[in-house]
C-alpha cells in the first residue's frame, strides 16, 4: 500500500495534463502558453500535455480577468475536472484583474470563484515561468496525495512580483539630476 502511494505520488508529479481556459484574456498569455508547449520550451519533456476535455485534465490553467460572462463557464469547467486537481492563474489578470480593475464588465479576480494554487504573474509571463508554475502545481498535486479535493489551497507565486512592479515605475538614471 505504501509502495502504491509512492508510485501514485511520482505519477502525479510526472504527468500533469492541462486544460486551458480563457476567461476574457487579451490572448497575450494564451500565446505564451502555446510557446511553453512549442518546440523551444517543449513542456512535454516534463510530461505536460494539453488536453481537449476538462475531464482528462489535472491542472486547470486560467488566463484573463474573469469577465461576468465567463464566471459561469469557469465554475462549470472547474467542476468538470476530476479530482485531484489544481488551478494555475496565468498572468496578472486572474490574480489582480490588472489594468481592468474596477471595470463594470468584470467579476474578478479569479480567487473570488475558485481556490487558486499557483499564481504566475506577468503581462504576459514568460513561457519558462509558465512551465515552472505548472511543475509547481504538479508537485502540489503529488504532495496532496489522496485528499481528492483542494479545499485548503496553498498559494505559490512564481517569480518576484515586486520586481515586476518596480521595473514599471520610472527610475532615475544613474548620475542624472532628479528634479523635485
Amino acid at each position: 500500500m505504501k509502495f502504491w502511494k509512492q508510485l501514485m505520488c511520482t505519477a502525479r508529479r510526472k504527468s500533469p495534463w492541462l486544460f486551458h481556459m480563457n476567461a476574457g484574456s487579451c490572448n497575450g498569455c494564451d500565446i505564451e502558453i502555446i510557446a511553453a508547449l512549442a518546440p523551444r520550451y517543449d513542456a512535454e519533456q516534463l510530461g505536460v500535455l494539453l488536453q481537449g476535455s476538462p475531464r482528462h485534465a489535472d491542472i486547470l490553467v486560467v488566463t484573463g480577468p474573469v469577465t461576468k460572462k465567463a464566471v459561469g463557464a469557469v465554475k462549470t469547467v472547474y467542476d468538470q475536472v476530476c479530482g485531484p486537481k489544481a488551478v494555475v492563474a496565468i498572468g496578472s489578470c486572474p490574480a489582480t484583474t490588472n489594468v481592468f480593475i474596477d471595470s463594470r464588465t468584470l467579476d474578478g479576480p479569479l480567487d473570488k470563484h475558485l481556490p487558486v494554487d499557483v499564481y504566475v504573474p506577468g503581462c504576459p509571463p514568460r513561457p519558462d515561468a509558465i512551465v515552472a508554475g505548472v511543475v509547481k502545481a504538479a508537485t502540489l498535486l503529488a504532495e496532496r496525495g489522496y485528499a481528492a479535493e483542494n479545499i485548503e489551497a496553498e498559494t505559490v507565486v512564481i517569480g518576484d512580483p515586486e520586481a515586476c512592479t518596480s521595473c514599471c515605475e520610472s527610475k532615475p538614471q544613474e548620475g542624472a539630476e532628479v528634479q523635485p
Partner: peptide, 26 residues
C-alpha cells in the same frame, strides 16, 4: 517530438500517465 525538434517525453511517460489516471476520481 524528434521530428518537430523537441526533446519529447521521458521513457516511462505512458506508464506514469496510466498510473496517474488510475488514481483519479470519475
Amino acid at each position: 517530438a524528434l521530428m518537430q525538434e523537441r526533446v519529447g517525453p521521458p521513457f516511462m511517460q505512458p506508464f506514469w500517465d496510466f498510473v496517474k489516471l488510475l488514481g483519479k476520481s470519475t
